[in-house]
Computed example of a mutant assay.
Amino acid sequence: MASETKRILIVEDEEAIANGLRFNFEAEGYDPVVLGDGPSTLAYFEENSHQVDLVVLDLMLPGMSGYEICREIRERDQSVPIIVLSARNLSEDKMHAFDCGTDQYVTKPFALPELLSRVRNLLRRPRAPLVVKHATEIDEFQIQDVHINFKTFEVVCGEETHQLTTMEMQLLRYFIEHEGDVLSRSRILRDVWEQGADVSSRTIDNFVLRLRKYIESDPANPKHLLSVRGTGYRFVANP
């Protein structure tokens, strides 16, 4: 039983699955709200974002994909936990969902105890723009001519501004807070992603490729986010 009432927004057009999720979330002490399409979901979130504690999101929805919904929610709220629940099981689908800002990805058919465990873990996470597990919090950081704002999730380089997702910014913060350290992929997975998240070492490599596009003048020849062969990565602010 949850210690306090948490509202879970269920975005699912299959009635049997939606009703099953509603029943089990209510049994756990949560307050579930079920919606079946993108426009109604975004309209509800626009009015009630401060009351939504977690989103469970299908990808294949009528009229508007779950990817679009996830992206729209992230533009309004960078911190609300989002779990994608989808029959799509290709790595490309998962990466696209992570690109759009989801926190975790669960494939159908799913094990209910595992889903409930993921929900509990995400709801324990403080509602803040970032979860910092180690060092002193920083709001801004400068890498030569690149300015990083952790409050607005923006990376500014010259006249170009990039809006980062929650996981992109969380990973970038992790590298900055461990400047100079050689960080193995397994350590990054353990420290940055939630336990049990459906991600692999390849996921980290893809995230690093995107971060290099934001902070490197020549992403093909990085000077800040360096690869350490056979191990992982090392961040250097001033090479």
Rank of each mutant, 00 (worst) to 15 (best):
D13V: 13
D53N: 13
T41R: 01
I10S: 04
E114Q: 10
D93Y: 14
G158Q: 00
N121R: 11
S184C: 08
Y44G: 02
L21E: 11
V199M: 00
I17W: 00
P62T: 07
L171I: 07
V228Y: 05
S3G: 09
L209M: 09
R120E: 13
R120W: 06
I204F: 01
E12M: 10
R187T: 15
L54V: 07
E114P: 02
Y67V: 06
M1W: 09
N89P: 01
S3L: 13
R229L: 04
C157Y: 06
T136D: 15
K94D: 14
V182A: 08
G230E: 10
V228M: 14
P62F: 07
S184E: 13
H178Y: 11
L90S: 13
R187L: 14
Y214E: 05
N89R: 08
G180L: 10
C157W: 04
K108V: 10
N89E: 13
R125V: 12
D181V: 04
D93T: 14
Q163Y: 06
F153N: 03
E177K: 01
A27H: 00
E12G: 10
F153D: 08
M169G: 02
R118A: 10
R190Q: 14
G101I: 11
I143L: 03
R124C: 01
P62N: 06
S3D: 15
E194A: 03
N48F: 02
H178L: 09
R120S: 11
L171K: 00
P222K: 09
L130C: 04
I138D: 02
E216R: 08
G232T: 12
F45C: 02
T165A: 07
V33I: 11
L112G: 07
D139Q: 15
D13S: 09
F110V: 13
R173I: 03
V33Q: 10
D58R: 04
D139I: 12
C70A: 03
S65L: 05
G38H: 05
M1Q: 01
L21F: 06
R22S: 15
I188S: 09
R22D: 12
R210F: 11
E12W: 11
L35V: 15
L85F: 08
E15I: 14
V155T: 02
S3A: 15
V84N: 00
S86I: 08
V56H: 03
G158F: 06
H224P: 04
H178P: 04
M64Y: 05
M167C: 06
D181N: 08
E4A: 14
V199G: 00
T166M: 00
T203Y: 01
I188L: 09
R7Y: 06
L171G: 07
M1A: 10
R118D: 14
I10R: 01
K6I: 07
M95P: 04
Y44H: 12
S91L: 15
S91A: 13
R88T: 04
L123I: 10
Q78T: 12
V55C: 02
D191E: 12
C100P: 01
E160G: 00
R88H: 05
L112V: 13
S117P: 00
D77R: 00
D191V: 10
I69Q: 00
V56A: 08
K151Y: 00
G36I: 03
R190W: 06
E46T: 12
A87F: 05
